[in-house]
Design a protein around this nucleic acid. Structure first.
Lengths: 338, 338
DNA sequence: CTGTTAGCGCTTTCAT
DNA sequence: ATGAAAGCGCTAACAG
């Protein structure tokens, strides 16, 4: 039987070192100056006892616990994974850890989950692309300090995000320069904020390129959604569409798979682009033209905002990253219409 | 200026309800029976004050904080992501949250990171495929309660994992039944425990199938590793190899991409298999034969062990999941050797 | 069934 | 520069 030993407390250290708890605390926290003699004896006692301070006690008295939470609708989503990674690595460098909460795409869980998660932490980052704007605004106020990812929000929570509209405009520019005049946008989930942003981009691009028509069709965000959209794409070809902008890479990849099976040449018969630049994009056949989003960088940026907020400083302006266009083989000159 | 209000404490609630703190605590925790009259007044006071108990205080007195940690070498790895998702969802159902710590593939960070993370939590799950066995054994003892993912470990920490060796044997069986007699295993990272398991599977399969030869070549675990291995595969073909077992799906996918570019027919000239059954596997061309691993299920299983351990119960036997063979188009009959 | 009273382990005035 | 002592907000004995 292993003896369940109660671990050493600061009182034990103080006793062993023959000093007061206050001195131990000072040595451990490097606050104010302490007699070198005491410092040494405290360090020795700490080592001898294998003392480790209780974080719970420290949290109680300090009111913070060096932890931040991140709420996401789906941990399986590569974007959130990348942000989480960037965030957790950056936070770790400052002695912070991150707690994750997955709301499994259930919008109504987001508020209670965020509130509960926030109670365990010093700050929170919200990824809630589907939550109605007014509820999100209320929520961010409730759980402040908070930073919001990938969508605008009323109130003073800082936002870090991706300029999806800009990405789409750059993409349309690319298609237009290749001679495409009729495009199809395969839309993502209807309630998604980032899909709305892309649609705004579509509208702006249409305004900017009077000669280019951009149709929109409902699709989705996953491989099978893209796969299933192939028929729709094929019939669009007959109506003069020569380029397809998929909501994201997964959709584009699924579409590519099915088009290949159908014998539709890409980019010969139709050009296809994705969004996100997942690792697989470069390895698709043909290699997928996409918009690269600095996921880990976003996470790091989220941390820098969070840290500022926790320190009580202003969080700075909202940042949005402009996606970088990665031109690969899946987009080419528009075919000459028969 | 928003007034920084100190939030209500249990004392405030007690005062407002005209009862003792103990009664408030009882009502809130549903311990023992309390006069309905008191229950109502406490609930009212709680609601009026918008009171929320301090988790820090509760942690201090109870010695636990309803949080578990998960240490991973790389959050970007789909396997760990899946486990994390399964774990966090299962844990959430029991009121637990999970804290993640990414050691960014730095083996020497694993111990300090695990120890530090464990101090913030009630238990921990260790994914440390590269950590030497003896160090892992010491570590699990140090941070107990702990569960280990995907590798055996000395001591009494429960293990939940995947039976990689068995998967490889099933795969070889599949290749053999298709008439393949000379195979090539593209190995993963050298120090990885799961690669060692697969190698064991290779050895076992070799013993079980005297007519089948399995060569091993160093490769890696990523798309580009597979891509880079194509030349090696091509020359192996000349030596009579007709089937390639890739370390995982990413390697297989990368290989497929390059083979396609080289004009090597799959499965006509060579059959290729992956491992993990990532979503993309089914959408590759040709669709990739793979071994499916129940990632979320693993996470849920991890939680059930963790919960038992936290409750002071025995954790039960180690579990290993046998991967399920998903036969798709990338494996076919062995070509007749010229 | 309810209230009183100790702490949980640490930080932080406040004296000295 | 150091120590004594007062909490942080809560739960859990222990009385009543």
């Amino acid at each position: 039987m292993t003896e369940r030993v109660k671990s050493a407390t600061i009182a034990d250290v103080a006793a062993r070192a023959g000093v007061s708890q206050a001195s131990v605390s000072r040595v451990l926290n490097g606050k104010s100056t302490v007699d070198p003699e005491i410092v040494r004896s405290v360090r020795r006692a700490v080592a001898d006892l294998g003392y480790r301070p209780s974080l719970a006690a420290r949290s109680l008295v300090q009111g913070r616990n060096q932890t931040v939470a991140m709420v996401v609708p789906d941990l399986e989503n590569p974007l959130f994974q990348g942000i989480l990674k960037g965030l957790s690595v950056a936070a770790a460098a400052d002695g912070y850890r991150v707690l994750v909460a997955d709301t499994v795409e259930r919008v109504d869980e987001e508020e209670p989950t965020a509130i509960e998660a926030r109670e365990r932490c010093d700050a929170i980052v919200l990824c809630a692309p589907r939550l109605p704007a007014d509820r999100l605004a209320k929520l961010t106020a409730r759980v402040a300090p908070a930073v919001v990812v990938n969508r605008a929000v009323d109130g003073d929570a800082p936002v870090v995000g991706v300029d999806y509209a800009r990405g789409i405009r750059d993409l349309v520019e690319h298609f237009a320069s290749l001679g495409h005049r009729r495009l199809l946008y395969l839309a993502g989930p209807e309630s998604s904020a980032s899909n709305a942003d892309r649609l705004r981009g579509v509208a702006e691009a249409t305004a900017a390129h009077p000669g280019v028509e951009i149709r929109v069709a409902a699709c989705g965000s996953r491989l099978d959604d893209g796969y299933a959209a192939a028929d729709l794409v094929v019939s669009a070809l007959r109506e003069g569409v020569t380029g397809v902008l998929a909501f994201n890479d997964l959709v584009a990849l699924g579409l590519l798979t099915r088009l290949r099976a159908l014998g539709v040449d890409v980019p010969g018969a139709v050009s296809v682009s994705g969004f996100d630049d997942v690792p697989m994009a470069a390895f698709a056949t043909p290699a997928l033209t996409s918009l690269s989003v600095p996921r880990a960088e976003l996470g790091a940026q989220v941390w820098s905002r969070l840290r500022a907020l926790i320190a009580g400083e202003p969080a700075g302006h909202p940042v949005t990253y402009r996606p970088r266009l990665e031109v690969r083989e899946s987009t080419g000159p528009a075919p000459v219409i028969a």
